[in-house]
Structures are given as structure tokens and as C-alpha cells.
Design a protein around this nucleic acid. Structure first.
Lengths: 142, 142
DNA sequence: ATTTGACCTGAAGTTAACTTGAGGTTTTAA
DNA sequence: TTAAAACCTCAAGTTAACTTCAGGTCAAAT
């Protein structure tokens, strides 16, 4: 039932020091055994998975922490708790994919086209739309 | 024809200090006028646009620099130069989109399914598939 | 002509996200 | 039972990507 910090590190693939750090930042939680050593519930593994996945998308720990705010600290998260989080993720990823696709297409059509006149370049004017999209993810994580 | 650092800053929306920084890191280039002030060719604006767009997607300056490596420092990039960059970029973004799509689907099906028994989770043994996508995403749901 | 604003360099400061190190305790396995 | 492995805390170091500062120069407008 209870995992030591070393076990969590091994199973999640993140360093012990990183787990200490996450705990200090309030992204994961533990209790102590008689000898003052950390003990974790298994659902910490899922949290760490999510942290890692989110980080790959350039999402800060602070934002991840806020996303986790919907999860209960006391009880083990239920299916509904995770589902809610899942919905967030799905939307966030969808948006991110959309942005990437747009950037790719812009890079292709604009850079590829060789139109060196920037004021006339579609990409040049596309910037604002992209900027809006980028800030748009605040919807989910602010 | 030639832009001062302040003009570039204003038109691109990034700080003068950031432009100094990018130049120092080799992402953009300039020459000096009689009074030792930086002068930029207009194509620096395109470079900066790309830097900004890529950064929004969590791509590091180092990676961007490498993507820029195909562009010539001396002469103004030609259509073919930009095309080459475009191809590189397209492939990079394609890969990234693929990763995100898979991640989204995994998050949905696994987190969304609410299977709290991690060892029984269908994705539990999918590590290898995910591992191929990039270092960080292995052991996604261990 | 002089003042104000833009520019220069180099160094130090900042934030995020960790890692490393030092010095000491607890757990585990032979 | 004893030695190695794992754990603890706290402080300092690290990298990326910048910003801020200090002290001085250059350019534009009055």
C-alpha cells in the first residue's frame, strides 16, 4: 500500500530529489513512518505521470499544481476526480495540437514560399492569431 | 534597409535585451554602423517571429538555433534556404503533433476510464511504445 | 550647443526546476 | 550485529532564458 520515496522514484522514472521538490511545492503529498521517512499512496504515481507529461508540453509546475487543485488531498481521487482532470487535459492538448498544426502549415506555406516581403507575408500577420491562441490556454490553467 | 535594435524590438515585440541575448547565442546576426551600434537586415524579423512561435510550443532556443543552422549567416536567405528550413521544421512539428495526439488519447482513455488499479491499467504495459516517442514519456502510467 | 533618448558593454540578479553535497539517521540484508 | 543501502535536512550549485544595473558613448531635436 505505502511506497517509499525510492520506490516511487524507480517506478516513475524521476529522481528522489525531484520528488522531494514536488512535495515541497505541494504537487504531491506524503506522510512519515516511525523513522521519519516519507510514505506515499500509490496514486502519487499517476500524479507524477501527469506532471511529466504536462511538462513536455511546456506547462509549468505552478499551472500543473493549479490543475491538481481539483483533486482531493485527503481521500484517494475517485473516477470522477480524475475524469474532471482528464477533460482539462483533453482540451489543453487539443488546443496545443491545433497551434502546432497551424505553425507547421504557416512555416511551410510562408517560409517555404520564399516571400521575403514581411509585411505581405501571411505568417507575419498570423502572429497575432497565434499569440491569442497561446494566451488562450489560460482558460484552462489560470 | 537597416534596422536598429530598437526598431527590431518594437516591430517584433521582444525586448532589446532579448535581442542582444539572441545575438550572443547566435540566433540572429547584425553588423555595426560607424558609431558601433547594431544594424539588422529585415529578415531578422522573420527569425524572431519563428523564435517566438517555437518558444510558445516549448521548443528551446538551442533547438531553434539548430533549426536555423541551415540558413546562411552572410547573405540574405534565399527561397531555397527557407525551404530547407521549412522542411526541417515541418518534420519536427509533425513529430511533435504525433506525440501530443498520442498523449491526448492516452490521457483520455486511461485517466478518463477511472481505472485506479494502476497495475491493471491497460496502459500499464504500453511503456515501450511510448518510450519510442521520447525519453520523458516512458513509464507514463506506471 | 546641449540635452534627451537610444545605444554600448560587462557583470550581476532573477525565476523555474532541479541537482549535488555535507553531515547525520534508519532500514535491510548478510 | 554490523555494514551497506536508503533515507533525512538544509544549503548551495546549475541551466535556461532573460532582465537589470552601472558607467559611458552616440544621435536627434530644440
Amino acid at each position: 500500500m505505502a511506497l517509499s520515496v525510492g520506490q516511487v522514484a524507480k517506478r516513475s522514472g524521476v529522481a528522489v530529489s525531484a520528488l522531494h521538490f514536488y512535495e515541497q511545492k505541494g504537487l504531491i503529498h506524503s506522510w512519515r513512518n516511525a523513522g521519519n521517512q516519507r510514505r506515499f499512496k500509490r496514486d502519487v504515481l499517476r500524479r507524477v505521470s501527469i506532471i511529466k507529461a504536462a511538462q513536455k508540453l511546456g506547462i509549468s509546475l505552478e499551472q500543473i499544481k493549479q490543475a491538481f487543485a481539483s483533486l482531493p488531498d485527503e481521500r484517494t481521487p475517485t473516477k470522477d476526480d480524475w475524469s474532471l482532470l482528464s477533460a482539462y487535459w483533453h482540451q489543453l492538448l487539443d488546443q496545443r495540437i491545433k497551434q502546432l498544426t497551424q505553425l507547421r502549415d504557416n512555416v511551410s506555406s510562408c517560409i517555404g514560399c520564399g516571400c521575403l516581403s514581411l509585411t505581405a507575408c501571411p505568417l507575419y500577420n498570423e502572429e497575432d492569431k497565434l499569440a491569442d491562441l497561446g494566451e488562450g490556454s489560460h482558460l484552462l490553467f489560470d
